[in-house]
């Protein structure tokens, strides 16, 4: 039982890492940051946040040879 729980834990933290690495959980992290840093104001919608994020990501040197 304990071993199985441990396996589930490992899978979950692996999945978290994959999500974080790919930016899949970016909006959730943005919401958390927004709630902490700017309480009382309304955050961007999911798609507005994504568009803004992409625009920002690709306005500098981001990929190499």
């Amino acid at each position: 039982m304990g071993a199985r729980l441990k396996l589930i834990d490992v899978c979950q933290s692996f999945w978290q890492a994959v999500r974080q690495l790919s930016g899949d959980d970016g909006y959730e992290r943005y919401l958390a940051h927004h709630a902490a840093a700017h309480p009382g104001t309304s955050p961007l919608s999911r798609s507005a946040w994504f568009a803004h994020r992409q625009q920002q990501k690709w306005s500098g040197v981001n990929r190499c040879c």
Binding site: R46, W49, A51
Partner: peptide, 8 residues
Amino acid sequence: YKLRPGRV
């Protein structure tokens, strides 16, 4: 961007 925003 449109269908499932941010689901990378």
